[in-house]
Design a binder for these strands. Sequence first.
RNA 1: GGCCAGUUCGUCUAACGGUUAGGACGCCAGGUUUUCAUCCUGGUAAUAGGAGUUCGAUUCUCCUACUGGCUACCA
Length: 512
Amino acid sequence: MNQKNIRVRFAPSPTGPLHIGGVRTALYNYLFARKHGGKLILRIEDTDQNRYVEGAEKYIIQSFEWCGIRFDEDVVKGGPYGPYRQSERKDIYRSYAEQLVTSGKAYYAFDTEEELNAMRERLNKSEAHLSQYGPHTRSSMKNSLTLPAEDVQRMLSSGEPFVIRIRMPEDETIVVNDLIRGEVVVQSSNLDDKVLFKSDGWPTYHLANIVDDHLMEITHVIRGEEWLPSAPLHVFLYQCFGWQDTMPQFAHLPLLLKPDGNGKLSKRDGDRLGFPVFPLQWRDPKSEEISSGYRESGYLPEAFINMLAFLGWNPGTEQELFTMDELISEFSLERVGKHGSKFDPEKARWFNHQYFAKYTTEELADLMLPFLETKGIAISRDYIVKVAGLIRERITLLPDLWQQSWFFFDAPATYDETVIKKVWNPAALIHELVSKFAVEASGLTTWDAEGIHDFIQDFISRHGAKMGQLMTPLRLLVVGSNQGPGMMDIAAVLGKEEFLRRVNAGLLVMMK
RNA sequence: GGCCAGUUCGUCUAACGGUUAGGACGCCAGGUUUUCAUCCUGGUAAUAGGAGUUCGAUUCUCCUACUGGCUACCA
């Protein structure tokens, strides 16, 4: 294959927010395209007006912007094969469907919903090895195969509702050559006469998809496994149109499964298990219901992508942390697994933690700025960088940046009761020790971590105290609990004045 | 029910006929940090079952079981 001409597409339907399974499919398409120097196309498949959801298309585009998946051709920037929204391509599909009718590969059908239901009833009662609307049933239905030609003409010209169905051959072997699964062989007798063109004047997915992939010169169709059952139909359609020589190669990706129990990962699982299922937060325009997103939960886009890439693919080495560029150079469809992956929210958190650990203090400071601004805290960047250095290893999600550092910017308003009980004991002794410390420390001149350390060392030996008897009570007064970085480091960053101010204020509270 | 696909530690997976079946997450234990978290070290734990093929099967074939997907004028 000529690698220069590789063209792949991601073709979502704007029926709601894109969930992480869809993002992963897009990611694999993106990696494949970049790896081979090809193009990635975003095509919006909005052929079902009933399911159209306001804002979904915008959501999809913003999601990809956030996670760094870039398209070469899409609805925003356009491209040589546009338009990229199927609703804007509506005119082109009918003639293709009719071309198939003319060549005898498809036919008009006029059955009403009731008639279709009646047929299915009959099928249910029979031995049921037969497909639905297919070779064995079409002869007893109302269509251009059974009706006299003049009746068909009359019905068509009088505006009678009709659909166009593919005419599946009775017994033919259809082979789908899948890049991930190998040869998938299906007998056409198991397939039915799928509707290609609906009575509302719109094409179904099957028709629009094949026509557009052909027109857009798509070379590889990389999509979810839920499409595998209809892949034989798609292959057959390429043959019907005479496009078999330029038919794209197929790769059906395994699905993302629920973390617990069984089944495909769904919107509900996020609410139920407490992790996001969507890249960005989504507010349903009708129900106003809010679904959480990875971005809003504090995940880094690089970590999110890294985590997603590893759900179904692996490089075959022990490296787990990959930049997008590394993913591009290492990715291959051969290393994509065949079976579904249960999504693991814990591992997602671990990836995010790893990325925070790699950040420089300067980068962390940049991330902290918005939080501090929200809280109305204005302080020197130098100070923020110092704080970032102390909390760097303690961050898993973005909000931890504040949760792990707030006491550098504000004195504690309360003290953890359980920690008081444990640490301020015996109360009189500790109180006296800390009081003496506060007095003596006020005379200390070299206020850095090392100086404070030496001083404390000297202090406890002179007073016959143990390190823990002083340090944990100090932490309680300065931080409000038993958390945070090393006490000497906190004291140094806070500065002598603020540090002692908190200690003395705390001593007053502890007296009560 | 029918069709298609899949099945290695609890989870994500490696091993493309020969390994003490490897790594990561989680969990457990110890160490560091006299806090908490991180981090470090160690441990726990798997080839769904049964037949073949083969000197030898996680790996190839078949059967069974289980899992998943699809079975709309939705994508």
